[in-house]
């Protein structure tokens, strides 16, 4: 079937099988290997991307279901050389070790901060509760997201004063 969808702001059209999963479409057909593929059973969350603005586990969405919708992947977080504050937070606070879970964690974190710019530690933990990290023990991920939140709050205050 012919699939047309928007990925990171660009419209793409490809011939795909109906059974192709979104995660494989992104990685194998578009070469966007930032999105990782782990458990394949909607448990680990490393495959999280946005569809129409909301985080989804792309191993449990068909590429065909993304037709006509907007997909955003981790490749779109940075603005040129300028890292997203969430990415910067992960750097500052040691939010990753092996990095396998990181793309999913960052996409969920970005969505959280867009809806709730100043989440509590508990709210951050709740947001990433469907995602697994085998390295960090989560504390540094939570700290990274909080770093981004504080950084963005400070930036907003500066801009408004």
């Amino acid at each position: 079937m012919r699939l047309t969808t928007t990925v990171n702001g660009e419209e793409v059209t490809r011939e795909v099988e109906g059974r192709l999963l979104l995660v494989h479409f992104l990685r194998d057909h578009l070469g966007l290997t930032g999105t990782h593929w782990g458990c394949d059973t909607s448990n680990c969350g490393t495959c999280v991307v946005w569809m129409d603005g909301e985080p989804v586990k792309s191993c449990t969405v068909l590429a065909a279901m993304a037709g006509g919708r907007e997909v955003r992947t981790v490749e779109d977080l940075a603005d040129g050389d300028r890292l997203d504050p969430v990415q910067q937070g992960f750097m500052e606070c040691h939010g990753l070790q092996c990095g396998f879970c990181t793309p999913g964690m960052m996409m969920t974190a970005r969505a959280l901060l867009d809806r709730n710019p100043d989440p509590s530690e508990g709210e951050v933990r709740e947001a990433i509760s469907g995602q697994i990290c085998r390295c960090t023990g989560y504390s540094t991920i939570v700290r990274s997201v909080r770093w981004a939140a504080e950084h963005e709050c400070a930036e907003r205050e500066e801009a408004s004063s």
Binding site: G45, E54, K57, T60, T108, S129, G130
Partner: peptide, 9 residues
């Protein structure tokens, strides 16, 4: 029920 990302779908 499930987790926030699953609940989105």
């Amino acid at each position: 029920i499930a987790d926030p990302v699953v609940r989105n779908r």
